[in-house]
């Protein structure tokens, strides 16, 4: 994918528009009606929210808004919900078995995602997958608490096992 040079004003405008659309969608879902007066009120509210949160808009610069991004988003959601269900079955099995089979450890994993939003999404996904909980994020390194860590695993293996399945799809729509 071609990287375009990002000017401060241009990206700010795009981020603002993104937030505006998200807030307006939120409003429409909450009111649950397509009445023109409701939409106009929502637009005013969304504009106020966007203008008020202008200093924090740079977090949205991590989003890649292209038609190409739709497929990774669908893939990511599929993987995410599948892993969430697996995580729960796995946790239920551990909790219910009398011997309580856990070998917890804190491991480090690396990520290639550079934007704050991308790392946030990755950290959240890790927390909801089988047996892992993101404890801390420092630059390119995530500290992960792992319920069933193999005895002496190194950072490469842990990275491959924990992050790769999400990162592959996240890279499609987040930087």
């Amino acid at each position: 994918m071609a990287t375009k040079p990002e000017t401060e004003e241009g990206s700010g405008l795009a981020d603002g528009l993104f937030l505006f659309v998200v807030v307006l969608l939120f409003w429409m879902l909450l009111t649950g009606s397509l009445d023109p007066s409701e939409i106009i009120t929502g637009a005013v509210v969304a504009l106020v929210v966007t203008l008020t949160s202008r200093p924090h808009l740079s977090i949205y610069s991590g989003v890649r808004l292209t038609p190409m991004a739709i497929l990774p988003i669908i893939n990511y959601l599929g993987v995410f919900f599948w892993e969430l269900i697996l995580a729960n079955i796995d946790m239920a099995r551990r909790v219910l078995s009398p011997s309580l089979p856990v070998r917890p450890a804190v491991v480090e994993v690396r990520t290639d995602l550079r934007s704050p939003l991308g790392r946030l999404a990755l950290a959240n996904s890790i927390t909801l997958t089988p047996g892992t909980l993101t404890v801390d994020v420092q630059d390119q390194t995530l500290l992960v608490h792992w319920v069933d860590a193999p005895p002496d695993i190194d950072i490469e293996n842990a990275t491959r096992k924990i992050t790769t399945k999400f990162e592959r799809h996240l890279k499609g729509f987040l930087k």
């Binding site: 969430l84 269900i85 995580a87 729960n88 946790m91 239920a92 551990r94 909790v95 219910l96 309580l100 856990v102 917890p104 927390t127 909801l128 047996g131 892992t132 909980l133 404890v135 608490h145 319920v147």
Partner: peptide
């Protein structure tokens, strides 16, 4: 059911990190 499993996990897990894990996952899906 999953919320119940989460609660059982809160009681049975050995330390606070494992308890958070059990709680988060079960309650989210539940």
């Amino acid at each position: 059911t999953f919320t119940l499993f989460g609660s059982i996990g809160l009681i049975r897990m050995p330390d606070v990190y494992n308890r958070i894990q059990a709680g988060t996952k079960a309650v989210t899906l539940g």
